[in-house]
């Protein structure tokens, strides 16, 4: 299978904190990978390194066999890597629909057009279709600022998905979503991801969620990957169990 993402020996420190410590991983096309690990173990840092928000002190990153180390987030995104954020990053004074329209127009590379309307019939239809996939209906006209946290998380993911990526990186897509809603949200997300076949990596704190949706789990600790297994094998491992239970 094609390797979509490969990180080799990534290192990044903040002062004395090693947020990435000789971190290497390969992710193949079509995989759905879960990342777990305690707070501060470097999960978000890993996504920041891959997307070029941070540049590693050492190590290389390859995307589809091409080195992308040191590229700017914009360039990485243009190559086909999209991400969502632990804290939703949205256009809060625009409506849900407008957020989606902006994503779509940027995807098509027409964001510099100052003459034609943003709201073309085709683009509106596409935006509504995508929003519907993610469970947005009547809220489409709502200004994002007024959306509940759960809705904002979902929109954040929907926007990155709308960019049509080859690799989708989701940072805690269900944080801020109520326990009761978690599985409904994940069912929606993973459903869309499976349907599109996009290679995905999601960071998640809730072990039940990881066990249910990931095909492969990376356990982070102090900037290292201490385990890399299918969820079944992983959660049978007594060390990991103790480690994870200890964390909870």
């Amino acid at each position: 299978m094609d390797v979509v993402l490969e990180a080799v020996g990534l290192a990044k420190s903040f002062g004395a904190v090693k947020a990435a410590d000789d971190l290497s991983v390969r992710i193949s096309s079509g995989q759905i990978v879960g990342i777990v690990g305690p707070n501060g173990s470097g999960k978000t840092t890993f996504l920041n390194l891959v997307t070029g928000y941070l540049s590693p002190a050492r190590g290389q990153i390859y995307y589809l066999g091409k080195e992308i180390t040191g590229l700017h987030p914009r360039q990485v995104t243009r190559l086909g890597v999209a991400r969502s954020f632990q804290v939703p990053q949205l256009y809060t004074s625009l409506t849900v629909l407008e957020n989606m329209l902006v994503a779509l127009v940027i995807r098509s590379g027409r964001q510099g057009d100052c003459w034609r309307a943003l709201r073309t019939r085709a683009r509106l239809a596409e935006a509504r279709r995508l929003l519907e996939k993610f469970g947005f209906g009547d809220e489409s006209g709502q200004v994002v600022r007024t959306l509940p946290e759960g809705g904002r998380k979902l929109l954040d993911v929907a926007l990155s998905f709308a960019l049509g990526p080859r690799l989708l990186l989701l940072d805690e897509p269900t944080s801020g979503v109520s326990a009761a809603e978690k599985f409904r949200v994940m069912d929606t997300l993973i459903g869309v991801i499976r349907e599109s076949g996009v290679t995905s990596v999601f960071v998640e704190h809730d072990m039940d969620v990881v066990q249910r949706y990931a095909e492969r789990v990376l356990v982070f600790s102090e900037g290292r990957i201490i385990a890399d297994d299918p969820p079944g094998a992983l959660f049978a491992d007594p060390i990991v169990r103790r480690y994870i239970l200890g964390e909870e």
């Binding site: 997307t51 700017h72 987030p73 914009r74 995104t77 999209a82 991400r83 990053q89 949205l90 256009y91 809060t92 004074s93 625009l94 407008e98 329209l101 902006v102 127009v105 940027i106 027409r110 964001q111 510099g112 057009d113 100052c114 003459w115 034609r116 309307a117 943003l118 926007l159 990155s160």
Partner: peptide, 19 residues
Amino acid sequence: SPLGYLASAIRDNEIRVEY
């Protein structure tokens, strides 16, 4: 137009625009 909305998007969240 797309550019007009991009300006609003930039005001709201530059990071997301780049991302």
